[in-house]
């Protein structure tokens, strides 16, 4: 824990201004991840800019028929919002698959996008970590890597992004609204998070002092054929070994549109358009799901403890697409996998 200054922002512009005016400042909303990291001396902000009172708590329908979610909407409010439950149940389900009720009550939507990896080494300041201390090394590659990435990793970092919500946002093709010193912009979801490459310290493509103001979701919600299936070491309150968000549009047994993304396997939610394209126009059956899974996992690479994830991911994709196709989504309060 470090000594820090605490200030409140009066509006978004003020938040950006205050951030730009100081070095080492961090925005804080729910604080469910940041405070933990501060206690561990992983994050050491000199100044916390409290944005939790900013008016970014609306869930509104957009002109195009989608929905715009304020960055400060608590995770649980969003999960139980009638619009989300009705039109984007995969998003509601993914949120409820994460953390605990208490954490979801505190955690904001913007914060969920920005949560940091749960890699053991990142969390322990006594060990090297390229994400925490660039250039210090990645002990996970040869160490405890059971939870780590099988896709898109680099020789510098094999951490995963821990969010469940983001996996659903990936298939919903969300757009992230941000405001910064140079004004506002909208980031398509695939461009929001980045792969570690040789800069694992940087999780996202946010520019310095930019703040997430909203997440916008286009109309297509896959309310009929969807699932969020999370496989983990215990049935609640654990990060995903592999998770799959799936959304299908099926007409007369034929897949019109297919999207699926994986969580727990990469530095960002993992989608593969080629795998989805393969399903379009095909019958919704296990054989086709298997093929799509194989395409997505073609480049997968395991490490000493996480090789099992490749096969597990394949099976989880097939099960998730099956659940979605059948219209029998995983229910997060169920004490079993459907």
């Amino acid at each position: 824990m470090i000594d820090f200054e605490y200030v409140r922002a009066s509006d978004v512009a003020d938040a950006v201004r205050q951030s730009a005016a100081s070095t080492g400042a961090k925005f804080i909303a729910g604080g469910t991840n940041l405070i933990d990291l501060m206690k561990e001396d992983v994050e050491k902000p000199r100044r916390l800019i409290d944005i939790s009172r900013l008016p970014l708590k609306q869930v509104e329908e957009t002109a195009e028929g989608g929905v715009k979610i304020g960055a400060l909407v608590p995770n649980s409010d969003l999960a139980y919002h009638s619009l989300i439950e009705r039109r984007y149940p995969v998003l509601a389900s993914a949120i409820l698959a994460g953390a605990s009720a208490q954490l979801r009550n505190m955690a904001s939507i913007g914060g969920n996008l920005l949560q940091r990896t749960r890699c053991y080494y990142f969390y322990d300041a006594a060990t090297p970590c390229n994400k925490r201390e660039p250039g210090s090394g990645c002990p996970a590659i040869e160490g405890l890597n059971r939870m780590h990435a099988i896709l898109g990793a680099s020789e510098h970092c094999i951490a995963t992004h821990p969010s469940d919500m983001c996996v659903a946002l990936a298939i919903l093709e969300a757009r992230v609204h941000v405001a910064g010193p140079d004004g506002e912009r909208v980031i398509p979801f695939p461009d929001f998070h980045r792969l570690p490459g040789d800069m694992p310290q940087t999780d996202t493509n946010l520019q310095p002092h930019e703040i997430v103001t909203a997440v916008e979701i286009p109309p297509q919600g896959f309310a009929k054929n969807y699932t969020y299936l999370k496989i983990r070491d215990r049935l609640s309150y654990a990060f995903a070994l592999v998770s799959v968000a799936a959304g299908l549009e099926i007409e007369d047994g034929t897949i019109k549109e297919a999207r699926f993304a994986l969580g727990g396997v990469a530095h960002k939610p993992w989608r593969n358009r080629a795998a989805e394209d393969l399903l379009r126009g095909q019958a919704a059956n296990a054989g086709n799901f298997q093929q799509a899974a194989d395409i997505l996992l073609r480049e997968a690479k395991g490490y000493s403890h996480n090789r099992f994830k490749i096969d597990l991911a394949r099976r989880t994709i097939v099960r998730a697409l099956t659940q979605a196709a059948r219209g029998t989504p995983q229910i997060q309060s169920d004490k079993k996998v459907r």
């Binding site: 006594a126 060990t127 405890l144 654990a238």
Partner: peptide, 27 residues
């Protein structure tokens, strides 16, 4: 309790990562 033997250190020294059963695991 997960040790990294290179560092001789427990790496899951907290009750988020050291797993014990939660309600969902108990029938």
């Amino acid at each position: 309790t997960a040790y990294d033997h290179k560092f001789g250190r427990i790496m899951n020294a907290n009750i988020a990562e050291y797993h014990m059963p939660v309600n969902a695991d108990i029938h």
